[in-house]
C-alpha cells in the first residue's frame, strides 16, 4: 500500500501512522445529549466493507495529517487531501 502525500509525493505505508475513522466528529460537550454523543464518538464505528474515510499522519515524512479515502476490501487508495484542506461539513 502506498499513499500519495500532497506535500511529499507517493510514499510507502510504513512512513505513515494510522489514526482511524475520519468521519466521527467530537460532539458539543454542552449539548443536552452530550453523554450519549460522546459514547458514540469514542466507541461506535460504521466499519464499512467498502470505501472508508480515514486519518493518516505522515509521521516519518512531513508530519501532515491527511484524510484518505480507501477501499478497505482491496486497499486501493481513492483520494488523499490534507486534513487542513478538508471541506468543512
Amino acid at each position: 500500500m502506498r499513499i500519495h502525500c500532497p506535500y511529499c509525493g507517493e510514499r510507502g505505508v510504513e512512513e505513515y501512522s494510522y489514526r482511524g475513522d475520519a468521519t466521527v466528529r467530537r460532539p458539543d460537550a454542552n449539548g443536552p445529549d452530550a453523554l450519549e454523543r460522546f459514547v458514540e464518538y469514542l466507541h461506535l464505528r460504521d466499519n464499512p466493507a467498502g470505501s472508508h474515510q480515514e486519518f493518516w499522519q505522515h509521521l516519518h515524512g512531513c508530519r501532515a495529517w491527511l484524510v484518505v479515502q480507501r477501499d478497505v476490501r482491496t486497499h486501493a487508495i481513492e483520494s488523499v487531501v490534507a486534513a487542513s484542506r478538508r471541506v468543512a461539513r
Partner: peptide, 18 residues
C-alpha cells in the same frame, strides 16, 4: 471479522473496527 456488517442488518452499530 464481519461482525459490524452483519450487525448493521439489525440496525446495530458496534464498538468494533475490522
Amino acid at each position: 471479522g464481519n461482525s459490524s456488517r452483519v450487525a448493521t442488518m439489525a440496525g446495530l452499530r458496534l464498538p468494533i473496527e475490522s
